[in-house]
Simulated scan of single mutants.
Amino acid sequence: MNATSPDPRFTIYHNPDCGTSRNTLALIRNSGVEPVVVEYLKTPPDRATLTGLIAAMGMPVRALLREKGTPYAELGLGDAALSDDALIDAMLAHPILINRPIVVTPLGAKLCRPSEAVLDLLPSPQLGPFVKEDGEVVIDEAGRRVV
């Protein structure tokens, strides 16, 4: 794949207004990969895609719900009695409820919060240093992860 053509093996469900999502995308690109970028607020996943992502991440449906800046409280989604199907219905009706960024690579799928969690999904090393938008150094000059 050349740098201008997205590699279909790598996908990020992205919100360009989210700093964590922007940092995650930049880390993917810093490994030499141009992923398929799905702006999920503009192009929400369908039920099969969303349930497949949840299964691939091996996480409870509730763990993917975003509360901050969403209609979570107004919709009563904190009710522990709600079924997974009801929670998925809410995410499909209100994609802002889907936490982000979700990244899929040949190494798996993961909700990448914090953004450096994506490093576990990238088969290629970082190509250079990386500093998050807030100034936190993630990758040093030698391409090593800063812990």
Rank of each mutant, 00 (worst) to 15 (best):
P35A: 09
V36Y: 06
V36D: 09
V36P: 05
V38Q: 12
E39H: 14
K42M: 14
K42L: 15
T43W: 02
T43L: 12
P44W: 09
P45A: 12
P45C: 04
D46H: 12
D46Q: 10
R47C: 10
R47I: 06
R47G: 07
A48M: 10
T51L: 04
T51S: 07
G52K: 00
L53W: 06
I54L: 13
A56L: 01
A56S: 13
M57E: 07
G58F: 03
G58A: 05
G58Y: 05
A63L: 05
A63C: 02
L64G: 03
L65E: 04
L65D: 01
R66M: 09
E67L: 13
E67M: 14
E67Y: 13
T70I: 02
P71S: 07
P71H: 12
Y72N: 03
A73T: 15
E74Y: 02
E74T: 09
L75A: 10
L75T: 00
L75C: 05
L75S: 06
G76N: 10
L77D: 01
G78H: 11
A80K: 14
A80D: 15
A80P: 10
L82P: 00
S83I: 10
S83A: 13
D84M: 03
D84G: 01
D85H: 03
D85A: 15
D85K: 08
D85S: 11
D85G: 12
A86R: 14
A86N: 06
A86D: 10
L87C: 00
L87Y: 00
L87D: 00
L87M: 05
L87R: 03
L87F: 02
I88W: 11
A90S: 08
M91E: 04
M91G: 00
L92E: 02
L92W: 01
A93I: 00
A93M: 08
H94S: 01
P95E: 06
P95L: 06
I96E: 15
I96V: 15
I96M: 13
L97P: 01
L97C: 03
I98M: 11
I98A: 04
N99V: 08
N99K: 13
R100I: 09
R100H: 08
